Simulated scan of single mutants.
Amino acid sequence: MDSPLKSPGRLPSLSALRAFEAAARLGNLARAADELFVTHGAISHQIKALESQLGFKLFARHGRGVVLTPQGQRLASTLNGAFGAIASEISAIAQEQQRPRLVITCLPSFAAKWLTPRLGEFIGQHPHIELWIRSTKTRENLAAEDIDLGIRVGEGKWPGLYLEHLMDDEFAVVASPHLAGGLPASPADLSRYLLLRSDTEPWARWFEAAGIAGSEPQGSMVFNDSALLVQAAAEGQGIGLARASLIQPELASGKLVKLFDLTVPMPGAYWIVAPEAPPWRPAVATFVAWLKQKASAG
């Protein structure tokens, strides 16, 4: 199988490059020798050998000292960035081995009603992984903010990100079994009740599927967080149009009941998004596998 790694081509010796980078950064051959625990003569010899191999000068004499040539400045800048990136990656890998950290972002409603109730199982299976959950409605820049994974809802059109389908969802009509005035006998009776919905999830599509004429009901309560909608419905404040994925704990406990068999599909889907495609580091791959297993289990 072909390796995804590219050949770096022919390079000078690493010790010579390190000697030059240190001398360029510190502005002094003697200080570079101290940093690398070698003699001043060794640093001078390595830089001269490097210049001979490259075919151009890296330093020029300036009085009793030396200054970088334009070519030396270019190479020093490149080496400094490369060595810094290597050191940073080694540090990150070492920290990952000690206790890997996993940063995840998702909607507050998904975090509260779907993810958090299941996380105890993951933590129990993988206590060495430190989870950071960022619940927000703001679409964050994963790469810029060092976020490993996002769980988003939509059509899956987010350029520059790697996407995997997580699950679909649907809307169901739910209410507290102790709703004041009793539960409606048919969809037509909904007009007598206070209706609850999310600000992005209107009743119109469900009414159309139920064969109820008319536009969006005026007597409704609108939430900007679907988790608050579920809580309000469970407390008997009205009848809610809720995502099926977010009401399972309330249905299981009896705080909510599903009023009708009719459901309508949620536009779009839930997606796992990442700043880059697999292969991922072990903690990320482990969490994604667990997440997909939980989604498929319902």
Results as ranks from 00 to 15, higher is better:
Leu5Asp: 12
Gln53Leu: 10
Thr263Cys: 11
Arg197Ser: 13
Leu251Phe: 01
Ser91Asp: 14
Val230Ile: 11
Leu102Pro: 11
Ser88Glu: 15
Thr116Lys: 10
Leu246Ser: 06
Val284Gly: 06
Ile133Asn: 00
Leu262Asp: 10
Gly240His: 01
Trp132Cys: 13
Ser176Ala: 08
Leu196Gly: 02
Ala233Cys: 01
Phe110Ile: 12
Asn80Met: 07
Ser52Arg: 14
Ser186Cys: 05
Ile247Gly: 03
Ser88Val: 08
Leu291Met: 09
Gly181Met: 08
Glu155His: 14
Ala76Gly: 05
Ala175Arg: 00
Ile133Glu: 05
Arg281Trp: 02
Leu58Asp: 08
Leu107Tyr: 08
Arg10Gly: 04
Pro127Gln: 09
Ala233Val: 10
Leu291Ser: 05
Ser191Gly: 13
Ser226Asp: 12
Pro267Leu: 03
Arg74Asn: 12
Leu102Ile: 09
Trp271Gln: 01
Glu235Tyr: 02
Met167Trp: 05
Leu68Phe: 13
Gly181Ala: 05
Gln97Val: 13
Leu149Phe: 01
Ala143Thr: 07
Leu68Gly: 11
Val284Glu: 14
Gly81Asp: 12
His126Thr: 06
Glu235Ile: 07
Thr105Glu: 11
Val173Gly: 06
Ala16Lys: 10
Ser13Tyr: 03
Ala19Tyr: 06
Glu208Ser: 15
Gly160Leu: 03
Met1Glu: 11
Glu250Phe: 14
Trp158Leu: 05
Leu14Pro: 01
Phe122Asn: 06
Gln293Cys: 05
Pro70Phe: 10
Val173Thr: 12
